[in-house]
């Protein structure tokens, strides 16, 4: 493999890794939206909070795996509490009230993080066997990013299995396509809501901890990735997991190749992509519902 080719492949893998993490964040959003019709703007804040939790757990236990497991779960529990005690009780102006409420939660989390951990960048150290480069067919590539791709794939497969092979998955899918159907199925809907909210937040948490060693942990962490995730949900089509997946990967590749070739305009690329999609199809690529 010559040098140019290697660069292309490396950028492609970078984009894939970023796209996978984006999808972890965006799929949680999509599930929650599909289920409850709520776009939770606190999602990015939870994502960032998980990175800080991960840092804290690593400080205490000196074990990266503990951080990767404990922090997302903790964030997931916070998400459940947030759903149970705040979002469920907000009934004003339809979705507008819920949107504003989740903005409130996001602001509180983001500022609390600054108050507790400060504004400096914090470093998460990965175990030695995940550091360094690996050589694949002449291409030197960081092991950790490959690990991210693998882990995200694994989570994806588990998610797909749950969605398509279990009764719970059936309920969730039914609810995503038709909210009234769940009531007809005679399911404890609030409980399923809480569960989905928890799982969605947990996945964002996993992405948060996973990306921390690459980007470091800092208060602006939520901004870029959170924004990308929200755009993905809008562009992919509200409530459409396949749409979210496709757009996540496109965004991942757009941003990595974008940085390579037109670094100044890289952030603008996604907005142009979004604008084009929405002009052609206001409900998003795979969108059918509009609420």
């Amino acid at each position: 493999m010559d040098a140019t080719m290697a660069m292309y492949v490396a950028q492609g893998l970078h984009g894939l890794a970023y796209g996978m993490l984006l999808f972890l964040v965006a799929s949680g959003l999509t599930l929650i939206f599909g289920m409850m019709g709520i776009l939770t703007l606190a999602h990015a804040a939870f994502f960032m909070l998980a990175a800080y939790f991960g840092f804290q757990v690593l400080q205490i236990t000196q074990n990266f795996w503990m951080a990767l497991i404990v922090a997302p779960v903790a964030v997931g529990i916070l998400g459940v509490l947030c759903e149970r005690f705040l979002i469920r009780k907000a009934h004003v102006m339809g979705h507008i009230g819920e949107l504003i409420l989740t903005v409130g939660v996001a602001l509180v989390i983001m500022d609390a993080v600054k108050a507790i951990w400060g504004t400096e960048s914090l470093y998460l150290k990965v175990p030695e066997y995940l550091q360094g480069l690996v050589s694949i067919g002449g291409l030197e590539y960081p092991i950790y990013r490959l690990f991210i791709i693998g882990m995200a794939l694994l989570l994806l497969i588990i998610l797909a299995l749950i969605l398509y092979k279990t009764r719970l998955g059936l309920i969730v899918r039914a609810a995503v396509s038709d909210a009234d159907m769940v009531n007809a199925l005679g399911v404890n809907v609030p409980l399923v809501f809480m569960l989905v909210f928890g799982v969605g937040t947990w996945m964002a948490g996993v992405a948060g901890v996973a990306i921390a060693p690459i980007l470091t942990v800092f208060p602006g962490l939520a901004d870029q990735m959170g924004m990308d995730a929200y755009i993905i949900v809008v562009v992919g089509g509200f409530g459409s997991l396949s749409g979210a997946f496709l757009v996540s990967i496109i965004f991942g590749l757009l941003s990595s190749y974008g940085v390579q070739f037109i670094s100044q305009l890289a952030p603008v690329l996604m907005f142009i992509f979004m604008a084009i999609v929405l002009i052609i199809k206001p409900a998003g690529i795979f969108g059918e519902r509009e609420d």
């Binding site: 929200y230 929405l278 206001p282």
Partner: peptide
């Protein structure tokens, strides 16, 4: 032509 949620999000993005 966007729904309420998409409208809010697109404006955030822009």
């Amino acid at each position: 032509r966007l729904s309420v949620t998409a409208f809010a999000m697109i404006h955030m993005a822009f």
